[in-house]
Structure formats: C-alpha cells, structure tokens
C-alpha cells in the first residue's frame, strides 16, 4: 500500500502542476470543456465501454492483491494513450488491437482464467494504451489535449474501479455470482465478434 500511496500522491502532484492558469480558459469556454469531452467519450462508445467492463470483470475475479493494481495501471495507460494520439498518426492497427481486446478479455472472463499479476497488469497496460490512443484526437494540441487525456484517465479510473469492485462483491457473496460473470464474459466475446465483423466489413 505504501507504494500505491506514493504513486497516487505523485499523480495528484503531477495533475496539479500540469494545469497552468492560461489552460483554465478551455474548461469554461467550451461546453463541457476538453476534460469533460475526454471523460464522456469512452463511456458513450460501445467499442470502449464493453472491453473496459470486461477488464473490470476479469480484475474482479482475480482477487484484491492483483485487482487493485488495475486502478493504477489502466487509467494511467489510457491517459498516456490519449496523449500519444495527439502526436502520432492514426493507424488501423490500434482498432484491430481494440477489437482483439473484446475477444481476449471476454474469453479470459468466460473461462475464468487465473492470470498471474504481471500478465494481467501487462494486458491492462497494452489495452489501456490502445483504447486511450483510439480515444485521443490529433485535433487537440498542448494543454487542451492534456485536459482531454486527464478526462479519459478519469473515465477509465471510475469505470474500472466500480466494475472491479462490483464483480468482486458479486463473485464472493453470491453462489451464482461467478457463473453470471462468466456468462457476461461470453457475451463480451459475442459482442466483440459481431462488432468486429461489422467493423471489418465496413472497412475499419
């Protein structure tokens, strides 16, 4: 926990220091500001929302010692991915990785695979970066992009925290819990296959 404390404090410090006063205009001069745009975008897009829920389900099945690290790795990776998107050209490979995340995460949940911590955290970083990148936009640069990326980070943090905790509660307290969660995993695979098929035939 001490490590988490230090890292969280550093995050808070970094966030505070990364918002110089001139950046403030962007938050109030736009409708919800870039921060709110970043916050809302992944939560209103099926291609992000479903795999993120899948990651939360997987984390919740793995127990406290592993799952709580996802609160750190996934949001930071998603935020970093959104920042990278501002400086790098868009590539179809990212969309393919995101489609792949449906299948991988859904299967891992459906089969209730007990991943070890490094593998699980590795997946959270890879998919965090890819989904964050897909959420990013090259139209923003400088501080607005940073605000947008922080919004993506916050969305990832809130969604993963709640999904992981709810999954853990359900799997521990209800006899049918794990079965229901594994069934949800199979649904994520099915959604991924439908969505992937549609996207690939549409020329993603």
């Amino acid at each position: 926990m001490r490590i988490l404390t230090v890292v969280y404090t550093l995050i808070a410090l970094a966030l505070l220091l990364s918002f110089p006063e001139p950046a403030s205009a962007h938050l109030v001069s736009t409708r919800f500001g870039e921060l709110y745009s970043g916050l809302i975008h992944p939560l209103t897009a099926l291609q992000h929302l479903v795999p993120w829920l899948g990651l939360g389900l997987l984390g919740g099945l793995l127990g406290n010692r592993t799952s709580r690290w996802v609160l750190l790795t996934f949001p930071l990776s998603a935020g970093a991915g959104a920042l990278l998107a501002g400086g790098l050209p868009a590539t179809a490979a990212i969309d393919h990785v995101n489609l792949f995340s449906f299948i991988v995460l859904g299967l891992l949940v459906a089969l209730s695979v007990r991943l070890n911590r490094p593998t699980f955290l590795g997946l959270t970083v890879i998919f965090g970066l890819s989904h964050g990148f897909a959420n990013g936009t090259p139209d923003l640069s400088g501080v607005p992009l940073l605000l947008y990326a922080v919004g993506v980070l916050l969305a990832a943090y809130v969604l993963i925290a709640i999904a992981t905790a709810v999954t853990q509660l359900v799997s521990q307290r209800a006899a049918w819990g794990t079965i229901a969660i594994r069934a949800a995993g199979s649904w994520i695979v099915a959604i991924g296959l439908v969505f992937g098929g549609y996207s690939l035939t549409a020329g993603v």
Binding site: L4, Y8, V158, A161, I162, A165, Q168
Partner: peptide, 18 residues
C-alpha cells in the same frame, strides 16, 4: 460514493495523511 465504496471493497485505501 461509488468510487469510495469501490476502493473500500478492493481495500485500496491510503493513509490518513494523504
């Protein structure tokens, strides 16, 4: 409330000084 509950559930809580 939801985020606070999630952290308690996952026992991902920080020391009081933070």
């Amino acid at each position: 409330l939801a985020v606070a509950w999630s952290h308690r559930q996952l026992r991902a809580e920080l020391p009081r000084w933070t």
